[in-house]
């Protein structure tokens, strides 16, 4: 019993410590970001691994989720004779919530874990130390480009996710349900607002991208330099990212709805 309490306490302390260390790590990344932009080739390479490689999973998931939303929305909306507004339901759900959040969760498990594993492995095999001994700072050569690649890729992926999702909803509406294409779009236009729906969604995806990239690079850099340590760090990236994204989503949504 006492052990359990003690365990809980030490876990609490360690998570507070990690949060503080991550904030410091973020500052360190920002201070060492010069090279990521001066030699943008480094960042482009990482965008390829973080962004382009996640393209298929993001777009396929987006399409399916949009279609499912369309079907479920139709099911409920037709009870109120409002099935024409199906597109509105799909678009608003995707733009405001599902687009940024689901993309962030997929991105954390696809790209975030890969970033952690890669940096962790470089640490375990002393590649980071070797680089440091060659008078090249791993923070600016390895960590910062990966961070920026993640932060840039995430909003792009979220936009693609929402777009394919709305397209999926459109397909269901037109082909399965038989809503007129003009009605679908005019309902969308009337209900979707650029400032409150599209822009807020983009803001969310940017925030999530930064958060996941910090977590992923930090966990990799902080990993125990063993195979086991890297595996643990990878798991931690996915779990911490998911929780952080959901918490941030709650906070951001609270702020964004208040202005409405």
């Amino acid at each position: 019993m006492i052990d359990a309490i003690r365990n809980l306490g030490s876990r609490g302390i360690s998570s507070v410590w990690r949060a503080g260390a991550m904030a410091r790590f973020f500052m360190l990344i920002l201070a060492n970001s010069g090279m990521s932009f001066r030699r943008f080739q480094l960042t482009i390479r990482e965008i390829y691994f973080a962004g382009v490689m996640s393209l298929v999973i993001i777009m396929v998931s987006g399409l399916f989720i949009g279609m499912v939303l369309g079907l479920q929305g139709f099911e409920t909306l037709q009870r109120y004779n409002a099935e024409e507004t199906m597109g509105v339901l799909v678009a608003l759900t995707l733009l405001r919530e599902l687009g940024p959040v689901v993309t962030a969760l997929l991105f954390a498990s696809r790209a975030g874990s890969a970033i952690t594993a890669e940096i962790g492995l470089m640490k375990a095999t002393e590649q980071l130390k070797a680089m440091d001994m060659m008078a090249i700072d791993p923070m600016s050569r390895v960590v910062a480009p990966r961070f920026w690649a993640g932060a840039i890729s995430m909003p792009v992926l979220a936009a693609l996710f929402s777009s394919t999702g709305i397209f999926g909803g459109y397909l269901v509406a037109i082909l399965l349900v038989g809503i007129d294409s003009g009605v679908f779009w005019s309902n969308l236009h009337a209900a979707v607002d650029f400032r409150y729906d599209v822009l807020n969604g983009i803001v969310k995806s940017v925030v999530f991208g930064v958060a996941i990239s910090i977590i992923a690079t930090f966990e990799g850099f902080d990993a125990d330099p063993t195979a086991e340590g890297v595996a643990r760090a990878t798991t931690r990236t996915v779990v911490t990212s998911a929780l952080t994204v959901l918490l941030l989503d709650l906070i951001l949504t609270g702020f964004m709805l208040r202005g409405d």
């Binding site: 678009a91 929402s162 709305i166 969308l188 650029f194």
Partner: peptide, 13 residues
């Protein structure tokens, strides 16, 4: 392209 599409076609900007 996706951002533009969302902003212009969907978001009515």
């Amino acid at each position: 392209a996706a951002l533009l599409w969302l902003s212009l076609r969907v978001g009515n900007l």
